[in-house]
Amino acid sequence: MQEFKPDLYVVARVIKNLIEKGPMNKTRLAGASEISYDKFLLYFDWMCLKNLIKEENGTVSVMEEGIRTYNLLVDWILKHVGKLMFRR
């Protein structure tokens, strides 16, 4: 079976939704993340494996590692986009 390669922006979108809207069930989270439920399940398994999110009593929530990863990503983007110099 081919290894699952997640899109970074989808991972970030899932975490952002959980941070901003709080814990929610998988169906709602898939909708909020704008991906099909089947595809979402692949992301869900992968993110649980990486300790980015967890599921308890049918509700998905973000873990500390998820928040840390998301913040790292946002900081990287802001830092590097901020350094870009070109004619505007």
Binding site: Y9, R13, L73, I77
Partner: peptide
């Protein structure tokens, strides 16, 4: 339109 997520998508894709 999606903000920072959109930037990540642009960089990635």
């Amino acid at each position: 339109k999606e903000g920072i997520i959109g930037i990540i998508r642009i960089i990635e894709e």
